[in-house]
Design a protein around this nucleic acid. Structure first.
Length: 272
DNA sequence: CACGGATCCTGATGGC
DNA sequence: TGCCATCAGGATCCGT
């Protein structure tokens, strides 16, 4: 479910409300992708200082020390409220705090919550160490991006999904950004001209920023920590539109499979 | 080293 | 209604 926009929208929906809260209890459900990596009871008494984001991870800063790295996987979502119904079968992590209860619901359990003592300890580095630059930050440099594409032999769609060049672009927004840039998803990254790479660089920022503005995409069940759904999917240009007319040129949208993931593109607008 | 494929898990959907 | 196959927003690991 969650790509960068959904994770950022989730963060914005509870970060201010939870800041300063004291952890009073921790509840675990079934195992997630990785173990928590600490005694859950050891978190009790810690204070939540801030909630940040790195790529598709939420970073929950704790005082006096440590942080939780939370990943929503494919099907994860978070709620934060004073009163929540009793935990359901897919609620696998919960922090009861002085400001309310933070609960992770994740049916497929590809998500994770992992404790790290510092942002650069071995645990955190294993998860965050290979991540590319933040697309909405200052570090997303055009010349660096062009050089990185020149160095990769694989299809541009896969380069975007891998997250080693730039983070946060998942299956929906990769298709959307490539459409906006007029680039065919199957083209090898190294074959993209500098001019087209510049269009893609801009398109990634535009698509992700617009998606955040629209509250993310709700394909089936995404909602932020207030229970609000996203609306970006309603205006998607190509994602999940196989056979439907392109919104620009009316040619039927095509679907191909790359690395076991669906990719959508317009055969007329995305020429090369 | 770089790439392609299998893999983790549960639920929704569509065809027969 | 039931059964089966397919697909789903991610990312790691393993073999070549």
């Amino acid at each position: 479910m969650p790509e960068l926009p959904e994770v950022e929208v989730t963060r914005l929906s509870f970060a201010d409300r939870i800041a300063g809260a004291q952890i009073q209890a921790v509840r675990l459900g079934k195992p997630l992708r990785w173990p928590l990596g600490c005694n859950p009871q050891g978190l009790v008494g810690h204070r939540i200082e801030a909630v940040r984001r790195r790529g598709k991870y939420l970073l929950i800063d704790l005082a006096p020390q440590g942080l939780l790295l939370m990943h929503l996987g494919m099907s994860g979502s978070v709620v934060f409220d004073d009163f929540l119904p009793p935990p359901g079968r897919h609620d696998h992590f919960e922090l009861q705090t002085s400001h309310g209860t933070l609960r992770l619901n994740d049916p497929r359990r590809f998500g994770a919550v992992v404790y790290a003592t510092h942002e650069d300890d071995a645990v955190a580095r294993k998860l965050l160490g290979r991540l590319g630059v933040e697309p909405l930050g200052e570090g997303f440099d055009l010349a660096d991006f062009q050089r990185a594409l020149k160095a990769r032999q694989t299809a541009i769609k896969q380069v975007l999904l891998a997250g080693e060049v730039v983070v946060g672009v998942g299956n929906i927004y990769a298709s959307e950004a490539l459409f906006m840039a007029g680039i065919r998803p199957t083209v090898r990254a190294c074959q993209i001209s500098r001019a087209r790479a510049a269009r893609l660089h801009a398109a990634i920022r535009e698509v992700l920023a617009e998606a955040v503005r629209q509250g993310g995409s709700t394909l089936r069940d995404f909602s932020n920590a207030l229970g609000e759904t996203g609306h970006f999917q309603l205006g998607a240009q190509v994602y999940d539109r196989q056979g439907l007319p392109c919104r620009v040129c009316e040619a039927p949208i095509k679907r191909v499979v790359q690395q076991q993931r669906s990719t959508y593109y317009c055969p007329r607008c995305q020429t090369f």
